[in-house]
Simulated scan of single mutants.
Amino acid sequence: MASERMTVSTLGGANVFEANSFEEWQERMSNRFVRLQVSTNRPENFHALLHGRSFDDISLSRIESDAHQVDRLQDFICQGESKYFKLSMLLGGAGLVVQDGREAVLGPGDIAIYDTSRPYSAVFEDGAESLVMVFPQEALSVSSEGVAALTATTLSRGSSMGRLIGPFLGELAANLDGFSGHAGIMLAHNTLDLINTLIYTELGLGAKRADHKADSLAEVKEYIERNLGSPGLGPAAIAAAHFMSTRRLHYLFEGAGTTVTSWIKSRRLERCRLDLLDPALGSATITQIAMRWGFLDSAHFSRTFKAAFGATPSEYRRIH
């Protein structure tokens, strides 16, 4: 069986997988993140190598492979399953990403993003090497509707943000085996923050957003992210800052399947969780961390945190 020939090892905390046949690669990749169809025109003597790391719900992989294609078919997409974005940066060789009627031809240094909740195809030529980052859609401040304007496009290397992020991702891929523990978690989330900034920049440079509603929601989420530490952050203040009614504000979030209050709470909890994992904040009290992100009642914060993560803040910090 192919699974008996697979070479899987651990190096510096990374999972290293080497496939010496296409059957091995097909078996490994078909369900690594979401269900995929994997194919090649030359299955004989196929070889591929994958270094993979996972930090919380963010996955990073450096992939080197012979020519192959992956397809996310409509029949593979199930209602209610988790939705992810995939971001690929080509490190070497050539590739192609197809989604939403667009094609992005990728060369070394090019970046493309695609959505696992809709069909897509990715094609890689012989010798292609890439960094693939997979993360939940809700991890971005930009709505999925907003990101839809950028799927299967080559994110600009000519912009100042593209010139900054490209080399960073290249260094990250080259040193993927060297990060672990708290430092790895922080690095993964910092990388996601940079990706978020890149997407905002690309949209702001003139890419058409899906519609005005998605545009407004993205701006509101960005405002919330910048003001999470303010105790007065709430629907009325947010609506006033954006010159809209609270009814309009609630309507924006209804379309995203959540509420304003729930979104604020989830983002504050996530910031608190990351602070609890940060060794540099080891001397900060639970109350200080809670107040830093807008929680004024320690007891309420503790109950809310436990409901979200299954442990009180102090227990979570001790365990992790």
Rank of each mutant, 00 (worst) to 15 (best):
E4V: 13
L11T: 10
A14W: 12
E18H: 13
N20P: 05
N20G: 15
E23Y: 07
E24Y: 14
E27N: 07
Q37Y: 13
R42M: 10
P43A: 08
E44A: 09
H51Y: 11
D56Q: 11
D56G: 13
L60S: 02
L60R: 00
E64L: 06
F76V: 02
C78D: 08
G80A: 01
Y84K: 01
K86Y: 09
G92F: 08
G92M: 07
G93N: 12
L96F: 11
G101E: 12
D110T: 03
A112D: 04
S117M: 02
E125D: 14
E129R: 11
L131D: 03
V134A: 02
F135K: 00
A139W: 05
S141R: 01
S141F: 07
S143V: 08
E145R: 13
E145T: 07
G146I: 03
V147E: 07
A148T: 11
T151V: 14
T151W: 06
A152P: 04
T153C: 10
S156R: 05
S160R: 02
M161G: 04
G166C: 08
F168A: 08
L169N: 02
G170R: 00
A174K: 07
N175Y: 04
L176A: 04
D177G: 03
F179G: 02
G181A: 07
G184D: 01
M186F: 14
L187G: 05
A188Q: 00
H189R: 15
K208Y: 08
A210K: 14
A210P: 10
D211W: 14
D215Y: 15
S216V: 12
L217W: 01
Y223V: 14
R226M: 15
P231H: 11
A237P: 03
I238L: 01
A239I: 09
T246G: 05
R247I: 13
R248S: 11
L252I: 12
L252C: 10
A256W: 00
G257M: 00
S262P: 06
W263G: 08
W263M: 08
K265I: 07
R267A: 15
L269A: 12
E270H: 06
R271G: 11
C272W: 00
D275P: 00
D275W: 01
P279V: 01
A280G: 04
S283C: 03
T287Q: 12
A290H: 00
A299C: 09
F301T: 11
R303D: 15
T312N: 13
P313V: 13
P313G: 14
S314A: 15
H320M: 07
